[in-house]
Structure formats: C-alpha cells, structure tokens
C-alpha cells in the first residue's frame, strides 16, 4: 500500500492549482480522521465526566487519599481498656503494685484485654489466672533475656508449686505483702 513519491508530488501540484477548492478537497479526504478524533474526544469527555462523579468527595482533603479514611480507621473499637480505666474502679491494686517490682507492668499485660469488662463490669468477668502458666511467660530462663532480669527454670525453681505460693503477683518480692 505504499504510495509512489511521484504521485505524492503530482498531488501537491494539483492542490496548489486552485486555492479554496483544494483546501475543501483536502478536508474531505481527511474527514475520516476528524471522525476518529471525534470518537477519541467523546471517550475523553466520558472519562472526565465519570471521573468527576466517581472520585470520593473527601479525596485530597489532606493529601492524595480519602480524608474520611482517617476517621474510619480511628473508629475501630478498642479491645484493651488501658490501665487508667482499670484503676478508676480498682484503686486498691495500684496502691500495692506501684510500690513493688511490678509497678510498670500494666493490668492487661497479665489479665488480658478487658475493654468489654470495663464497659460492662457486671456481666463480663475477667478470666481467673493460673500463675503456673502466666509467670513463666516472662520469667522462664532464656539466654537472650537481658542480664539482671529475674528468670528461672520453673521445674527446678519451684518443684511444681504454684508461683503464688511464695510470690504475690501484684508485689512479687517474697514477704513484700499485698493483695494476691
């Protein structure tokens, strides 16, 4: 479908021969290109319209994202109540705990997540804890633990006795006293 250069040349001569008519002819011969351009323009227009409709309203509020996403993420329910909530109702525990070795251990570190209990203390009861299982989570011997952190080989250390026989969890030093 190549077109001979000679033809091309002669075509141009013809075009130049009569001014307006040639321009009109040239437009006619390129008409299909305008049709394509029209199809593309329609596509582009449709894109602009659809885009305007579909982009979420809050997009770009703070940056290139949905601004409302921040609030949606912040709306996730809380599962750990936080020790401040615990202490509002149980002030007697920090009174003992804060004087002992476990002062910086928060309530839910041992008792587990209790937002549900904080919300409805009457019906949701915290689970009873088993010191034999609980204490070793932190205090079992491991070569990678920082030196000076109290760690024991449980079998050897207690001979099967529950930890709270000697150590009271809220103030674990033997003889330190306090509520179990």
């Amino acid at each position: 479908m190549t077109i001979e250069p000679a033809q091309e040349g002669s075509g141009r001569v013809e075009d130049r021969a009569d001014g307006d008519g040639a321009a009109m002819n040239r437009f006619k011969d390129a008409e299909h290109l305008f049709r394509v351009a029209l199809v593309f323009a329609a596509g582009a227009l449709a894109f602009v319209v659809v885009r305007a409709i579909l982009v979420p309203k809050s997009f770009g509020e703070y940056g290139h994202y949905r601004g409302t996403a921040i609030a949606e993420i912040a709306a996730q329910p809380v599962v750990f109540a936080g020790h401040e909530s615990c202490e509002t109702c149980h002030p007697e525990v920090p009174a003992v705990k804060n004087k002992g070795k476990h002062a910086k251990v928060n309530c839910e570190a041992c008792h587990g997540a209790l937002a549900k209990h904080a919300e409805d203390p009457g019906t949701v009861e915290p689970a009873k804890l088993e010191t034999a299982v609980l204490c070793v989570k932190c205090h079992s011997k491991n070569g990678a633990k920082p030196e000076g952190f109290p760690q024991v080989d449980a079998k050897e250390h207690s001979a099967g006795l529950a930890c709270d026989t000697c150590h009271k969890p809220h103030s674990p030093v033997i003889g330190a006293g306090g509520k179990p």
Partner: peptide, 19 residues
C-alpha cells in the same frame, strides 16, 4: 469500523499514509 467514512480516494489514502 469505517466510522461512516468510505473515502478511500488516492488523496485520502495518502493522508492516511502520512498520519
């Protein structure tokens, strides 16, 4: 696919070639 244009005159084809 013709988009309603059936012009395949020599000139039209030359324009196509160019484009």
């Amino acid at each position: 696919l013709t988009l309603g244009s059936t012009n395949i005159s020599e000139n039209a084809l030359r324009i196509d070639e160019r484009a």
